[in-house]
Nucleic acid binder design. Structure first.
Length: 592
RNA sequence: GGCACCGUAGUUCAAUGGAUAGAAUAGAAGUUUCCUAAACUUUAGAUGCAGGUUCGAUUCCUGCCGGAGCCA
């Protein structure tokens, strides 16, 4: 970074010349000067006082004097306790800003890093519709993929659908028994919801059977295993694995409904995938790896015939990778799938799994096994772990029906957006489909921003009784600011290049400094796989812009050079707001 | 039992070991002949407890209390 490099270089020289200190660059801690003090950047002088054998104030003063004498870019300094606040010249900031007025400011050229990264997210089951937890997963994965792309990486977005197993058979069986041939078309129910309905129905009937068996005197555990429905579902799974045509046809039909339903939700959320994997294609992968692991003596056979790996030396436990009956477990598939992907995409450098933090142990084990099997890329596998979305009375649990349905919540957001928009009455002249699109933009923007502004790693609380805000630190607040900027720019007509001599006022300077920060925010966000940094930055930029907009007129400014500067600032702030929001998967409207 | 995580205003969230712990919302009080008031301004309010390391701790270490998780 321009200013940081310049400051670091001069400070290094100053420390050497004044005190004979060969400072390490990481000891030169430069931060943004806090608002209550004068200055642009602040150096913490404490690390040097021992070697300098002077008080923090003296060190600050000495270094400040040195900087001013060395380069005219540094115009002023002041020292408060151990903090040296340095001001940079008007010229410097203007010159910087002139170079920053580009559309893709802060982005590295796509592919310039030479790295290819696969980001997996969503990864749903096909037996139930998506809920709020899935939304967090989806927009987090999508956003992180976008953010990594700004750092010059090639990105592959993938989805892995869990489309087989006993849970699917439960839905299928319940539909066969109680469905009367109902389809999404005949019922008007979205496909994934229809299948979910029968998953719930299965559970209901199954519980009834268990209760009956228990009342006949069977122990509960036995009853759970012997209920006719569960036996039938297990038979169905066996038939599926044997390739029974009737079962497979039903499976295809019902999964088709679910995919249609998911596609709709993905489209509403504005996310997409470069490739979708299906577990029905990949669930047998990894079995042959077990033999390889045995040959390499990474795995061992246990007395009961199962195969395991001992990870106790790494602080983990023994992990079974093949059951005694020869069937594989989840981790076996995951091993196989990972290896397959690196074969399929030889240029792949990194594989990111967007999965909840309840599976942290699973991924630790997975990556460790891959490493022990000798795959060098195992080090580059990353579990993008995020916290659960909790309701006021605890975690969401599909089986207990305590979930916030994704489609319902989105519809609610859209109608709230519609209602608010109508109340404010600013959308004269909008066509019907434009209005619909606007409600969607605002509603989903509120929801996505709500979820991405918080640290992805932490669990978050969602209270269905309190609607998601549209005022304050929210998506619509930022969208609104963008719309105001576009309105001003639309009225301004032609703009000219800014005058390099124009004097900046406090808020103009503040805005340029924020523009200066954007690229490092992108880097930080990419490095930590955390979109919340971008969300918080955009919010700060927006807030500052609103203050500027309130205090200083742009279009009515009589001094033409100042007016042009303000227009340029408005334009670039708008551009960054738009780019930042797009990285979060949020659209911004030109009017609202 | 073992492993890792969390605890900040009434509430929901911020704070690469740095200055007087920031916001939003709810509360109180204001701003409209002026580029969109979904905005702006003012005000009140918080680091679970006890130690330790450090010039400096919300952040690192130890113990306790409280909350959720994974592996058995």
């Amino acid at each position: 970074m321009l200013a940081h490099g310049l400051l670091t270089q001069h400070l290094k020289q100053a420390l050497k010349d004044s005190y004979g200190i060969d400072a390490d660059e990481k000891d030169i801690v430069l931060q943004k000067t806090r608002k209550e003090f004068e200055g642009d950047f602040t150096l913490v002088t404490f690390p040097f006082i021992k070697a300098a054998k002077q008080s923090p104030e003296q060190v600050g003063d000495t270094l400040g004097k040195f900087l001013l004498a060395a380069n005219s870019t540094f115009t002023k300094y002041n020292v408060v306790k151990g903090f040296l606040n340095i001001s940079l010249s008007n010229d410097f900031w203007l010159q910087f800003f002139s170079g920053a007025q580009i559309e893709n400011y802060g982005y590295k050229k796509e592919g310039s890093s030479g790295k290819t990264i696969m980001v997996e997210y969503s990864s749903p089951n096909t037996n139930k519709p998506l809920h709020l937890g899935h939304i967090r997963n989806i927009i987090l994965g999508y956003s992180v993929a976008n953010i990594l792309r700004t750092q010059g990486h090639n990105i592959l977005k993938v989805n892995l659908v869990n489309d087989r197993g006993i849970h699917i058979c439960k839905s299928m069986l319940a539909w066969q028994k109680f469905g009367n041939g109902e389809t999404p078309q005949s019922s008007g129910i979205k496909g994934d919801h229809l299948v979910g309905k029968y998953y719930v129905e299965f559970d209901k009937q199954y519980k009834k059977e268990i209760a009956e068996l228990v009342s006949q005197g069977k122990p509960k555990e036995e009853a759970e295993k012997q209920a006719p429905l569960i036996l039938e579902a297990q038979q169905m799974l066996q038939k599926w694995e044997a390739g029974d045509k009737e079962v497979k046809d039903l499976w295809k039909k019902m999964n088709g409904w679910v995919y249609d339903g998911f596609a709709t939700t993905y489209s509403v959320l504005g996310v997409d995938f470069d490739k979708t994997y299906y577990e029905s294609d990949t669930y047998l992968l990894g079995k042959e790896l077990v033999q390889e692991g045995l040959d390499k003596k990474v795995f061992y056979k246990k007395d009961n015939g199962s195969v395991a790996i001992d990870l106790s030396a790494d602080g983990l436990d023994e992990k079974i990778v093949l059951r005694s009956d020869g069937t594989s477990v989840y981790i076996t598939q995951d091993i196989g799938t990972a290896i397959e992907r690196f074969k399929e995409f030889p240029q792949l450098n990194q594989l990111i799994y967007t999965v909840g933090n309840e599976q942290e142990y699973h991924f630790k084990v997975l990556f460790l096994i891959l490493q022990k099997l000798g795959y060098a890329w195992a080090k580059e596998c990353y579990h993008l772990s995020y916290g659960m979305v909790e309701l006021p009375d605890g975690k969401m649990k599909s089986r207990e029906g305590t979930v916030v349905d994704a489609d319902e919540l989105l519809d609610e957001m859209f109608s709230t957006a519609e209602q608010t928009t109508k109340e404010l009455g600013k959308v004269e002249g909008f066509a019907n489909d434009e209005l619909k699109h606007l409600y969607k933009t605002i509603g989903s923007g509120a929801l996505k921003y709500f979820m991405l502004k918080v640290d992805a790693k932490k669990k978050m609380l969602f209270d269905p009784k309190e609607s998601i805000d549209f005022n304050g630190n929210t998506g619509p607040f930022i969208q609104y600011t963008y719309a105001r900027i576009q309105s001003v720019l639309g009225k301004a007509g032609e703009t000219k290049a800014i005058d390099p001599k124009v004097e900046l006022n406090e808020l103009e300077r503040e805005l340029i400094k924020l523009v200066y920060e954007f690229p490092s925010v992108l880097e930080e966000s990419a490095k930590t796989y955390n979109p919340s940094h971008i969300a918080n930055y955009i919010y700060e930029l927006t807030k500052t812009f609103n203050r500027f907009y309130h205090d200083h007129s742009i279009l009515k400014e009589e001094n033409e050079t100042i007016k042009q500067l303000r227009l340029a600032l408005a334009k670039q702030c708008g551009q960054i707001i738009k780019n930042g929001m797009n990285l979060l998967g949020i659209e911004v409207p030109n009017r609202m």
